[in-house]
Every structure is written in C-alpha cells, then in structure tokens.
Design a protein around this nucleic acid. Structure first.
Lengths: 188, 188
DNA sequence: TGTTTTTTTTGACAAAGATCTAGTGATCCG
DNA sequence: CGGATCACTAGATCTTTGTCAAAAAAAACA
C-alpha cells in the first residue's frame, strides 16, 4: 500500500488525513492468472490500483476477441465508463498474469469525494488521465503504422511486453497474429 | 440560447437559479468559414456550445494535416485536454462552415463550479462524455473497416457530412483521399 | 466572367495486411 | 510421461490501401 500512498502524495499532494479517509476504504485482492476482474454485461463497481500483474481489456467474440487495452503494475484500472455510468460493461477484463491490487468500491469512493477536500480534484484528474490516454491512442491509430505501434509498445514497456501473448498485442495494435509475426521477423 | 437552456434542463436537470448563474457568463461569438477557434500552441480558454456550424479538429502538418475530429451544431466543443490542464494545445480547431456559438471562459466556469450545486456534476459528466466518445472511436478504429467507418459517419450525420470536404473525412477515417474516392465509387 | 487554385477522381503499380492452410513448438493437464 | 490444446510461424493468394502522376471537376477570386 506504501506504493499507492507515495503515488497519491507525489501526484496529487494528498494530506495525511485525506489519505487516511481514502485508504481505510481500500480492499486488497488477488486474481490468479486467467481469471476475470470483470465480465461483459456486469456493472463495474471498483476502481483498482495494480500493485502486481498485467490486465487485459477486451470485447469477447466467438471467433476472436478484440483486445483494446492493457493495464500494468503501478497504474489504475477500471472499466471506467461502466464505473462512472454504473451501466453494464460492454467488455471484459482478465488477469494475464497473477495480479495483486488494492481497490475501492463505487459507493465508498463517492463518500470520499464528499468527505475529503481533494476528492473531486482527484476524480477529475483520473477522468482527464483516461481521456488523454484515449486521445493519444486515437492519434497513434490514425497516424502510425502497425509496425510503429508495435515498436512504441515495445520501447515503452520493455520487460512487461514479454509476458503478454503476441496474439493479444496483435489485436491491440490492430492487425492479425500472422501479420505481427511477419513484422517481428522483419525487424529482428 | 434557448437551445442551450433546454439541453441543460433535459440532460442535467439544472435549476433556474443555477442556469441564471451559468448563462450570465456565456458570451456569443461568430466565426466565419475557414477561421480558427484555436491555433496549435495556444491554451484553450473556452468551453463552447455550437448553435450553428461545423468545426474541424486537426494536427497541422506541412504536407498533410491529420484531422481527428469534428464537432457539430448542438454539441459542446473545446480542446478539452488543453482546457483542463491549461497547457498549450497540440492541435488546431477550424470552422469548416460559418459558426455561431455560446462560450464560457475557464475562469468563469471555475467560478460556476464553486457557486452552483450542479457545477461539479456537469463538469464530470462533460469529461465522461468526452472519454466515452474516444472509447467508442478506439473500438471503431480497431474493429471496423474504412468503408464501415465512412458509412457510419454517413448514416449518423446525413446532412452535415455533405458540407465537409472529403479529404478531411478521409483523414478522419484513417485513409487517403484517393482510397476514400474508390470506396465511394464502389458503394454508389 | 474568366482565370487560378483547390478538391476530387482515375489509373497503374507497389506495399501492407487479411485469409486460408498447415506445420512447429510450447504448455497444460490427466 | 504423453496426448491434447494453444500459441506462434510460415507460405500462397487475394483484397485493400498507399504512392505517384495526371486529368477532371469544383470552388475561390479578381
């Protein structure tokens, strides 16, 4: 939990008392490899901070899933749209590796928003961060080639990428596993 | 302005007194065709509600711009990331057709957030809406073909699309004007 | 209006990726 | 350990899109 406290101190300048209010609501959970944090159709009820592991966000399909996102150690993860609207989620979230996280429920976070000074500020920053990530990805999908997107992922997350099956990475960058295999051959 | 009031009443259930506080800060502006609402490098200082016109959001490039978004009559428009962070904007916004809008400044909106009950709620909803739009677009860019993206835009905005030069639409759906021309020929 | 500029279309060819098929290697599980 | 399943690689072929070049159409402007 120290990791999380440090993050809140450094990023948002949270006070000791606000941290106490927030952290008292955090619950620790572990998800074994290949288990689901959330299944399509359910409402997301948590905002989670990943202390260990890799999560895959995907739209399940009988023939092949559409993997559109990953979340790593040290970041927040949530089906944020479903969390905010409290509407059923249109995608699933699965632990690719054994995952350990701290999470807060929707109800408890709402309470923190109301009871602490910094709550709403953090809520807005979180939304903004999610929005910015999507904006950058939009540009990448429009402007970069599949090869550039692969290399970017590779340089940004050198050690973590090795633990993600290539077929998920292929889907994420918008090509088939066969095409990614060829790209890897070409650049090696 | 009635259009805007109706929107706030229906969507957020805003009270008469909150509306009075908010609307007193709104300023009316017109932008002739091909003029800029914001130029790359400047800080976005407004949140605008379009009562008439079409806006294009794009990253300027010497050889060819990357158009990544449009905003239409009846919607909000803002370089929302720059607006929230008050950092220089990495893209430009241009009126494709003559545009009329009501807008509020960053400072005035902050004041409304503090002075009205519903301010923060609206702010969060706006962020959520922007985030959801980007999420849906991400899925479309990964999952749909260029042709499907063109047809979607065409069916969602039948009359408005006709006013947007095809080269901008091509950029938006992620292909060259030549490729779009071929698609249009094929489906006609 | 006529001229200039911009936008759109077209054609030929190259490149990237999809699809289908299959082989190989790794991993899972009884 | 050994069979079964899953992940990755590979080749052949087809489709889509990019690129380069140029013509045609439309819009801007004097």
């Amino acid at each position: 939990m120290d990791q999380l406290k440090l993050y809140f101190k450094n990023t948002f300048g949270i006070s000791e008392s606000d941290w106490a209010a927030f952290s008292s609501k955090l619950i620790y959970r572990e998800f074994p490899k290949k288990t689901h944090l959330l299944v399509k159709g359910k409402v997301e009820n948590h905002l989670s901070f990943i202390s260990e592991g890799i999560i895959r966000l995907y739209i399940p399909n009988p023939d092949n899933d559409l993997t559109f996102g990953f979340a790593f150690k040290g970041n927040f993860v949530s089906a944020y749209d479903s969390f905010l609207t409290q509407a059923p989620c249109i995608y699933s979230m699965e632990a690719i590796t054994e995952t350990k996280l701290w999470r807060i429920s929707y109800q408890d976070l709402e309470a923190v928003y109301k009871s602490t000074e910094i709550g709403n500020f953090i809520g807005r920053k979180a939304a903004e961060e999610q929005f910015l990530k999507k904006s950058q990805r939009e540009i990448a999908l429009l402007n970069d080639t599949a090869e550039q997107r692969y290399l970017k992922l590779f340089t940004e997350r050198p050690e973590l990428i090795q633990k993600i099956p290539l077929k998920y990475i292929a889907s994420y960058i918008g090509i088939t596993p066969q095409a990614l295999s060829r790209i890897r051959k070409r650049i090696s």
